[in-house]
C-alpha cells in the first residue's frame, strides 16, 4: 500500500459517501444517473468475486464490502425507494448502458492476462468501469443546474482513478516486474473521460459560479 493508492481509496470512499449522503438525507437523486450506478454495481460484483475465497487484509475486505453494499443500495434507493425514485429523471437518463456491457465483455474475452473465468470477469470489470461514467456525464450535460453534491460526487469519482494512476507509476518504479498494461490503459481511458468535466468543474470553482457543462 502506498499513499497514492490509499488516497485513491479514500477519495473513492468519499464519492460513495457523498452520494449516499445526498440520497439518504435529502431523499433526492436529482441529476444522478441510475444507469451509471447499475454499471458500477456490476463492476464491483465482477471485480470482487474473490471476496470470500481470498483474504488479503481487513482493509481490503472491508472496503470491498463497503463498495458492494453502497453501490447496490444506491441502485435500490433510486429504483424502489418511494420518495427517492420520484426525483429520478428517467426521461433524461437515456444512455443505452447495455451497449457498454457487451463490448466490454467481448473485449475481456479477447484481451486478458489469463483466460480463466475469474481473470476474464476481473478484466471485464476494468473495462466496464472505464466507461461506466458515460451515462452520468451525458445526464450532467442535459441537467441544466448541477447541484453541488452531484458535482462533488462526479469529481471525487474521477479523482480516485487519477490517484490510482499515480499509484501505478509509483509501483512500477518501486516493484520489480510490476507491469499491468490492461489495468493501466483502462484506468487512463477512464480518467481521460473526465477531462472536460474536470476542466468545467475547476472553472466553476475558480470563478465561483454554478457548475454547468456545455450541451
Amino acid at each position: 500500500m502506498n499513499i497514492f493508492r490509499f488516497a485513491g481509496d479514500m477519495t473513492h470512499l468519499a464519492s460513495v459517501l457523498v452520494l449516499l449522503l445526498k440520497i439518504h438525507t435529502i431523499k433526492s437523486c436529482a441529476g444522478i444517473s441510475l444507469k451509471t450506478q447499475e454499471l458500477y454495481a456490476l463492476v464491483f460484483a465482477t471485480r470482487y468475486l474473490d471476496l470470500f475465497t481470498d483474504y488479503i487484509s481487513l482493509y481490503n475486505t472491508l472496503m470491498k464490502l463497503i463498495f458492494l453494499g453502497s453501490s447496490f443500495s444506491i441502485v435500490w434507493y433510486i429504483r424502489y425507494h418511494k420518495i427517492v425514485r420520484r426525483s429520478y429523471d428517467k426521461d433524461q437518463d437515456t444512455f443505452r448502458h447495455y451497449f457498454l456491457v457487451l463490448p466490454c465483455l467481448l473485449l475481456a474475452l479477447l484481451i486478458n492476462e489469463k483466460f480463466t473465468f475469474r481473470e476474464v470477469m476481473w478484466t471485464f470489470s476494468l473495462y466496464l468501469e472505464a466507461v461506466a461514467i458515460l451515462p452520468q456525464l451525458v445526464l450532467l450535460q442535459r441537467t441544466r443546474n448541477i447541484d453541488n453534491l452531484t458535482g462533488q460526487y462526479v469529481f471525487l469519482l474521477g479523482a480516485y482513478r487519477a490517484l490510482y494512476i499515480l499509484n501505478w507509476i509509483y509501483r512500477y518504479f518501486t516493484e520489480p516486474h510490476y507491469v499491468h498494461w490492461i489495468t493501466w490503459i483502462s484506468g487512463l481511458v477512464q480518467t481521460l473521460l473526465y477531462a472536460d468535466f474536470f476542466y468545467y468543474y475547476f472553472q466553476s470553482w475558480k470563478n465561483n459560479v454554478k457548475l454547468e457543462l456545455p450541451a
Binding site: R5, H12, D54, N60, K114, W122, V179
Partner: peptide, 10 residues
C-alpha cells in the same frame, strides 16, 4: 507471471 489472484488492489 503477470496475472495473479488475489488482486491486492480494489
Amino acid at each position: 507471471s503477470q496475472s495473479k489472484f488475489p488482486k491486492d488492489e480494489l
